[in-house]
Amino acid sequence: MNYLERRVIHGVLLLAGVSVLCFAFGVMAPGDFFDEMKLNPQISPATVAALRSQYGIDQPLPLRYGRWVESVLRGEWGYSFAYNCPVRSLLMVRAGNTLLLTTLATLLAWLIALPLGVWTANRRGRWDDRLGLAGTTLLLSVPELVIALVLLYLAVRTHALPAGGMVSVGFGGLGKQAQLIDLASHLVIPAATLVLASLPLLVRHIRASVLEVLQAPFVQAARAHGIGGARLLFRYVLPAAANPLSSLLGLSIGGLLSGSLLVEVITGWPGMGPLLLEASLARDVHVVIGAVMASTFFMIAGSMVADVLLVVLDPRVRLGST
């Protein structure tokens, strides 16, 4: 079996494990979706019981899990009690929105962090390096919640940006270009929050990786052969630093995903975050499981991308060091 096949199988097993755990914890927690109805005097206990048996909540756990797996295989991903529709249709739209936000944020964060990390590593100990370190320390100590609130406050005060949601009212009536601009302006605050929150760790890791390579004997040797400047950086330093950095990429994708759930809730981005929150509060079990599964899937896919990148970039991994 080759590397990629093994990785895919690991991923599938991991997803199955997560689904079992999610299901067990979601169902074993006291209370369910219909408990609230019992408080309503207008609905008779018999009606509630009928509803519960209709949705299969009164059945034992393994059976319910089996039915859920069956519905997953049908492509429905369970059934939402609250929305009264299959989870899939709910989740696809939300997951797409989350993916749009996190992909953009990851891309932007790396585009900013990479040159910043490389620059500060090259200027180690000088004033700009110290400034960078101070800046990242400051950002590191501010929770993303605060960053989001500050940005929202600025948006509301200046009216420069929409302070929530994904599109403006009357989005459908706009032209293609205007639609794009509208979407982009709504993306600014959640994306900026995510970028600012993940930036300090990325910059520091990149700086540390590049510093380590800069001190490696082969970089010294390359300098002794008269190779310097940009050539040294792009041909020697960065390719050698790519190994730890591609692992970091996998981690940063996972980190941004979990971070985005919170940021989405605060900034009103209609991604999986608000959906997960509502569903958890309402005990809409299948939606919760679906959302968790989707983010697990993204995370596994992210680390797989990183691993494949590692194999492509590093001949020691690709060829097996003997």
């Binding site: 079996m1 080759n2 590397y3 990629l4 194999v311 991994v317 690709r318 060829l319 097996g320 003997t322």
Partner: peptide
């Protein structure tokens, strides 16, 4: 025993 990723070959040293 070593194995290169993306291939089914194994080397024994």
């Amino acid at each position: 025993v070593q194995r290169a990723p993306f291939s089914h070959k194994k080397f024994a040293i």
